[in-house]
Design a protein around this nucleic acid. Structure first.
Lengths: 342, 342
DNA sequence: CTGAAAGCGCTTACAG
DNA sequence: CTGAAAGCGCTTACAG
């Protein structure tokens, strides 16, 4: 492994000159530039990124912290982030972290000074305190699917309340009067927002029946609970449900179908995420009417905002440009007009 | 952001001493250690990883380069790598790269000096020349699902030839005599090995019928070709197929089922990977008899070998400890005894 | 246009 | 046990 000095020696110039041609600076005479370039090629030299980062205090890399990398839901985010960062000539480093799990390496400290900015995906990846401390350290960060009252952090979210409101409206138009809300057990801000959408929707429709159940986020755990609440749905003559996500939606579908229900004829379901988890349920079930999230747009916004912050004028404070994206209601085969009163 | 000097000043000691307590060296008197620790806490100081890496020529991080992070097939690898690395107190950085795509950042150069060692997953992530150059630069690398005649590189693979041989044997025992081989279009070494397993298997069973078709690796592209070769399978009275992977297997299943075949009664299929892609096919199809790969074991081997290489005695050459893992034939519902002659 | 020198924030022989 | 100093491999005012 050769270093800049070896190149300089071989080319018969100073290290400064070598550095200048590496960094594409104009002010180098052609003949010297040539010689340097040749020396670089001959030695197969690549600059030491670490030394460079230390000298320049700039890495041209973005760190992305997610809870996991392999769930298909994050796929579009991750692809988008990678693609847009590449366009801006930034490398991206993905790390796995869950602040609820113990781990030997703390990825926030770990990435310190290795990246110019951080993107967190999902509330589980960072705590409010960590965000505060990051902001204090003037580290550019974008937080997706997270919402805390922390300054100097850009939060990117989806209009959870309004979306669910729209879901209830949709069910209302179809004639449903007894609509249940199946939410998650995790006490996230997303949950609060979606629950509000349910209540507001009901109120504006003038519907008196209101009932919320909590299910685990995960399909396999949700499945059992879904079965156990079925009798209560029947007692209550419920004809439709809004489900926090399509995993829970799938669990409810499975429970209903295996109990002889026809979906949507006997029961309408609206989910969230527009994922069709055919590999989860033991029975086939219709694609759920649910919300499509603009992941690519969100990724683009995340990258461009972050890079803008990274390249802000020296000394400027970090401004936060939080943004809410709209989800699109995709009407599939799990909702229809109410056929009878339960 | 404070640095080591700020801490030293505050604690009234030298930078050397601060460095020693950061690095848990014994030889620091308790009172000084206390003062340093206190200063660190008060200033909320974290050492600059970049400076450290430059000074020590060691990063305690492992770089993993994969073609994509979100396909579920890689999930167990990735989880395993992350978990075992964490146990060894190494951080891991995931990067997305395909050496067949153009990209603005070359992740190999990009990771140079940022990591202590590299793991490539999949043949598409690195070329033979790049591997040679990496070996020459004495960079520890482990290559999974890749096989090149390059020294000082550890290759981890699965016994492709023997597995397919076993698949053919399985079909032979069930009475199948006209077995087709459906391979991929990509000219990988994996393909060569699996094709050899097919031919050797046929030979040892004394079966004369031999026929290989090439399909795209991807389900959606494979689906059309699968339909178009159906007439030829019928003409040839084929009763069973080995498929390069379960995506191709799913495509073939779909083609057969939509043409009125009952699987496995009318046609037996062995796949590879033990993934059940129920979300791909338009028709339900039975779980494919196929091979389970020991991804977690492979991940463990990759991490422990890599770290061993990283920590080899100074000056030692890198030894390569390539290893082949065995796949397990999982007999599911897509294979049965031959019912008639096609 | 170009080089000598200082600096980025650490670590680590070396000397005491 | 501890500090002064050199070094890791770069970049960048500064001076010419």
């Amino acid at each position: 492994m050769y270093n800049i000095y070896d190149v300089a020696k071989k080319a018969g110039v100073s290290r400064s000159t070598v550095s200048r041609v590496i960094n594409n600076q104009e002010s180098v005479k052609d003949d010297k530039r040539e010689r340097v370039l040749e020396a670089i090629k001959e030695l197969n030299y690549t600059p030491n990124a670490t030394a460079r980062a230390l000298a320049m205090n700039k890495t041209n890399t973005i760190g992305v912290i997610a809870r996991e990398l392999t769930e298909s839901f994050n796929a579009k985010f991750i692809d988008g982030i990678h693609q847009y960062a590449d366009q801006m000539h930034y490398g991206v480093i993905f790390c796995i972290r869950s602040n609820t799990n113990v781990s030997n390496v703390n990825y926030i400290d770990f990435l310190n000074k290795k990246v110019d900015g951080l993107i967190f995906i999902g509330q589980d990846t960072v705590s409010e305190d960590e965000l505060i401390s990051l902001a204090k350290s003037q580290i550019p960060v974008v937080a997706m699917e997270i919402e805390y009252p922390v300054e100097h952090i850009t939060f990117i979210n989806v209009n959870n309340r309004d979306s669910v409101y729209k879901a209830i409206e949709h069910l209302g138009k179809l004639g449903h009067k007894r609509i249940v809300n199946i939410t998650t057990e995790d006490k996230t801000q997303e949950r609060t927002a979606r629950n509000k959408g349910y209540e507001d929707g009901l109120n504006d429709l003038g519907l008196a029946y209101k009932c919320t159940y909590e299910l685990p986020y995960n399909f396999f755990e949700a499945r059992h609970i879904a079965r156990s609440i079925l009798p209560r749905l029947i007692d209550d003559k419920v004809t439709a449900a809004f489900c926090y996500n399509n995993e829970i939606g799938a669990a409810l579908c499975e429970a209903l179908i295996t109990n002889g229900y026809d979906i949507p004829k006997d029961f309408s379901i609206v989910g969230f995420d527009d994922m069709h988890y055919t590999n989860l349920s033991e029975v086939p079930y219709p694609r759920l009417t649910s919300f499509l999230q603009p992941q690519r747009d969100m990724a683009f916004y995340a990258i461009s905002t972050l890079i803008q912050i990274i390249n802000r004028k020296k000394g400027d404070a970090i401004t936060s440009k939080s943004k809410e994206f709209k989800c699109k209601l995709m009407i599939h085969e799990s909702t229809t007009i109410v056929s009878n009163e339960g």
